[in-house]
Design a protein around this nucleic acid. Structure first.
Length: 947
DNA sequence: GCAAGGTC
């Protein structure tokens, strides 16, 4: 038995394997140089098994748009709320994926060891999907651990559970929304503002993101608070007491008053009887607490405050230190050391250093005493040094030193002191002075980043009196807050749930890159013209795009998905509807954005209409929604040939509606179909005279949305099949997932139906009627596929052939179903190997045109004597339904002509087998299989003259 | 040329 274990990153895989194997592990190279394979033997439930432990590098798959939706100007940004998206493996991770596939094939069990957080659960499902595709029978378990320590890891192995789909679903919802909302608003803003302000923004990328905009919002908000600040005068009474050279300040218990007259009255009272009565003298121990163990956010903030380095640079350096083995994993939310970590050993490494070595010795002598925080990400310990070095320079040295000093400080003791509080009364007004005596500096001796200053005070005794040196009426005025610094900005992001510990620095960097914000004196954030204009523009529309609560609301919903109290499909649909609504309203008043920006950009604004047509290329009009993927389907015209209707997600979705030669011309009618709804446009057909049944005029306006079965039959549009998915995921043969919010909307409608709620967005065509308008939708791989990855309609790997016949295609290679001749499920999948592009395969295939014309002419001729009265025609069709289905399947995959030997009815096909074979052998067409050692001539019958 | 989330 072999077990494949997969962690979220190489470092985790290495440690987990080390703990499980008690160090008896063999390291092997994976296909990705960064993700090794750790092999060891293990006693699993009483059996000796071999475990291969490897890793991914975070997410293995990510959502992307397909087909025309990828191109900025080839679709409306509004379409991106519904356009199909695929979850696929980016180029960078193909090697990791290949390692998983290879290892999964030879494994019986898969154990997921990703981090035990939300993203980790989702990454786990990505690993599962890849491994299951390679080995459908692999058994899956989830290891649940609270930290990567020996005890915790072994405990997890002994208590394996199942991965949690709800948690993973929540992440899918988050990812899909981020992509749809980000892409739609980014394209809209960028394309529009480039056009409105070509002089200053023609090369700018003006992005929108659910984290970057609130981050910008914080900067703008503080900036405006500073700008709009109106100082307010105040008054206060100050008392001093000087003995020798020491002046003690007594602060008024009322602090300050904003009423000058009232303050003056109180002041004069004090002056009248200025003798001070000491009413309380209290001396008590006071501690200054050592820091809590270091997490990422604290490192970023302290680096900004004390090391004068920004968060991005700090994290970059921390990663370098981690990769050199000097410090532990730097992206952690944990500020509690696990119980069984050997802190003594870690401290001991530093005893020889001439800067902090003595302190390290002292910590060992006094005993390590970690101050504990309250947070744990259940995966990584707090950031701490794991190797000693004195060889670093520059900022690396500074960051390493900080991490070491912080580590030693948090393990030592709090600083101890004595605080004296003296309270006096002057004619019923109270004042207070504080003194501080430091007894033991403790952690402060190593942690130079903090001060604790002695404050001397005279010796006072309760009930004594004295004459103050001065009693003054002091005036002042309130002052504006400072502009935001990076540590403050990070605190705000953390508090409002914007980004994660691993992404705060990136979001801040993004808004700098986009020129939304800049730095004043290298410390303070100020919004730039673009940032101010964008925030004000959306504010003026009434949308709080730059406020954090939109993201916070989503976060609440995601929690509910994880808790199984809210359906992910509903959350997704609700959020999409919400943002689409805002988007459309924003587009309708887009000139407000221009107006606000023109205030700041000091550039002439071109007038651009408040719509999306003005910023994208001329788009084809939508006819109906694709029954396969939910995208828009549009009319494609070809010179001198019939038009056809194509899915906008082509080539990933190959759903199309083809028309026979009897259709001479098709134009879009301005009207939509009353039966099928507003989503379906009527078409104006021009038929070849006499080609249609007598009751059709040569010019006919009709619907191909599914309501007019007579028309569909007459145009040979197959309405008998449906591959409309009954789940929200449209899984193709390769198992990759195509998600589409249009389909999700229907899923939500179904749920609403069950709950008895009104279904206002119901789409009769796609959900109820379930017509697959053309049964020629081809399967597609979403990975970047090599030859071996091409799959046919049956879902098996297609074979590669070479055309041998003396014709225009001689020498070209193509893929077709690899099943043997006579196999009833053999499909007519066809794909030119040198040419996946639509133009050559479908749009410009002159062979197809010729063949298709011939076919229709023959078909028409052979039927010319038939009784075309509808009942009779339909009865015949029903009687021969198997035949029709077979015929549909047996059309040539390339040109869609019904290849002559394959027109035969099902019942006859077997009987005709011999005859077909001999025909094939006589045929002069020769097709040679690319990889076969012998030629299988009988395959010839599957391909027609066009090949 | 889009997002945010992982991570070498």
């Amino acid at each position: 038995m072999k077990i494949l274990s997969v962690a979220e990153k190489n470092d985790a895989a290495k440690h987990i394997a080390g703990f499980l194997s008690d160090g008896n592990v063999q390291r092997k190279e994976g296909l990705s140089q960064y993700n090794k394979i750790y092999e060891f033997n293990y006693n699993f439930r009483g059996r000796n098994v071999k475990i291969s432990m490897t890793s991914v590098s975070g997410h293995l798959l990510s959502y992307e748009f397909v087909g025309f939706y990828k191109k900025w100007k080839s679709c409306s940004p509004d379409d991106l709320f519904e356009a199909p998206v695929v979850k696929q493996c980016p180029q960078d991770f193909l090697k990791i994926k290949a390692t998983l596939e290879r290892e999964a094939k030879s494994s019986d069990i898969l154990i997921i060891w990703t981090d035990c957080d939300r993203e980790g659960e989702n990454i786990g499902f990505e690993i599962i999907s890849v491994c299951r595709k390679a080995n459908a029978n692999i058994q899956v378990y989830r290891a649940k651990f609270s930290e990567i320590t020996k005890q915790s890891v072994k405990n997890a192995m002994n208590n394996l559970g199942q991965p949690n789909k709800q948690i993973s679903d929540a992440v899918d919802v988050r990812s899909e929304l981020d992509l749809r909302i980000g892409a739609s608003f980014t394209r809209f803003q960028t394309l529009r503002l480039q056009k409105v302000f070509p002089d200053v923004l023609s090369d700018s990328l003006i992005s929108y993101g659910s984290c970057q905009f609130p981050t910008l919002g914080f900067v703008v908000e503080r900036y405006k608070a500073v700008q709009d600040f109106i100082p307010e005068p105040f008054w206060k009474i100050k008392v001093t007491h000087k003995i020798n050279d020491l002046i003690v300040d007594f602060l008024w218990k009322r602090t300050r008053l904003f009423d000058q007259l009232f303050c003056q009255v109180l002041y004069e009272k004090c002056i009248e009887q200025p003798r001070a009565n000491i009413i309380k003298v209290q001396t008590k121990p006071k501690s200054k607490w050592r820091p809590i163990p270091l997490d990422t956010i604290e490192l970023e903030k302290v680096a900004g405050r004390k090391l004068k380095m920004n968060a991005k640079e700090t994290m970059h350096i921390a990663e370098r230190l981690y990769n050199q083995g000097f410090i532990s994993y730097p992206r952690t939310e944990t500020n509690i050391f696990p119980h069984n970590i050997n802190l003594y050993n870690l401290v001991e490494l530093h005893t020889g250093d001439n800067r902090w070595g003595q302190f390290a010795v002292r910590v060992l002598q006094e005993g390590v005493n970690p101050r504990q925080g309250k947070k744990s990400d259940q995966a990584h310990p707090p950031i701490h040094p794991i190797k000693y070095t004195d060889g670093l320079n520059g900022n690396e040295r500074k960051v390493y030193e900080y991490i070491v000093r912080h580590f030693l400080a948090c393990l030592s003791k709090d600083a101890e002191g004595l605080e004296t509080v003296v309270e006096i009364d002057i004619n019923n007004e109270r004042f207070e002075a504080r003194g501080l005596q430091i007894l033991e500096k403790n952690y402060l001796e190593v942690y130079h980043y903090e001060n604790w200053n002695v404050k001397e005070i005279h010796s006072y005794r309760q009930n004594d009196t004295f004459n103050p040196t001065s009693i003054e009426l002091v005036d002042g005025e309130t002052s504006a807050p400072n502009l935001l610094t990076e540590p403050e900005l990070i605190s705000l992001m953390e508090k409002n749930g914007i980004g994660t510990d691993a992404t705060h620095a990136e979001h801040i960097d993004t808004i700098k890159q986009r020129m939304y914000v800049g730095l004043l004196d290298e410390i303070y954030f100020v919004p730039g013209e673009l940032g101010l204009g964008l925030v004000e523009g959306y504010d003026s529309m009434g949308f709080e795009m730059s406020k954090p609560h939109l993201r916070a609301e989503l976060e609440n919903d995601l929690k509910k998905i994880c808790e199984n109290t809210k359906n992910p499909k509903i959350v997704l649909a609700e959020q999409i509807n919400k943002y689409r609504d805002v988007f459309r309203k924003a587009v309708n008043q887009a000139n407000k954005l221009d107006l606000c920006l023109s205030k700041y950009l000091k550039s002439r604004a071109n007038i651009v209409e408040n719509n999306l047509n003005s910023i994208v290329n001329a788009l084809p009009e939508n006819i109906l929604k694709c029954s396969s993927c939910g995208s828009n389907m549009v009319l494609k015209h070809r010179q001198n040939n019939p038009s056809f209707i194509s899915c906008q997600a082509y080539p990933q979705c190959r759903n199309a509606i083809w028309f026979p030669d009897k259709v001479i011309d098709i134009q879009l009618s301005p009207d939509t179909c009353v039966s099928c709804g507003n989503n379906v446009r009527l078409l104006k057909f021009k038929f070849r005279p006499g080609s249609m049944a007598p009751y059709y005029f040569d010019v006919h306006t009709g619907c191909v949305g599914g309501c007019d079965s007579q028309l569909l039959e007459s145009l040979e549009i197959n309405g008998a099949h449906s591959n409309f998915p009954h789940s929200d995921n449209n899984i193709n043969s390769s198992g990759d997932t195509v998600r589409n919010s249009f389909i999700n909307q229907n899923a939500m409608n179904r749920l609403n139906d069950q709950q008895g709620t009104t279904n206002r967005n119901f789409n009769p065509l796609s959900f109820d009627r379930k017509f697959n308008l053309a049964n020629n939708s081809r399967n597609f791989r979403l990975d970047s596929a090599g030859d071996a990855d091409i799959q046919c309609n049956c879902g098996v790997t297609a074979r590669k052939y070479t055309v041998q016949k003396e014709n225009a295609n001689k020498g070209r290679q193509f893929f077709a179903c690899s099943k043997p001749l006579g196999e009833p499920t053999k499909c007519t999948f066809f794909l030119w190997a040198d040419n996946n592009a639509p133009q050559n395969n479908i749009f410009q295939d002159t062979n197809y045109d010729r063949q298709h014309s011939n076919y229709n002419r023959n078909f028409h001729n052979s039927n010319q004597n038939r009784d075309h009265s509808i009942p009779n025609f339909r009865a015949k069709k029903r009687a021969a339904s198997t035949t029709i289905n077979t015929r549909t399947q047996r059309k040539c995959g390339n040109c869609r002509q019904e290849a002559a030997p394959l027109i035969a009815d099902v019942e006859q096909e077997e009987n005709e087998e011999t005859e077909i074979k001999s025909q094939a052998e006589d045929d002069e067409i020769e097709v040679e299989k690319e990889s076969a050692t012998k030629t299988e001539n009988q395959n010839v019958k599957d391909f027609c003259d066009c090949i």
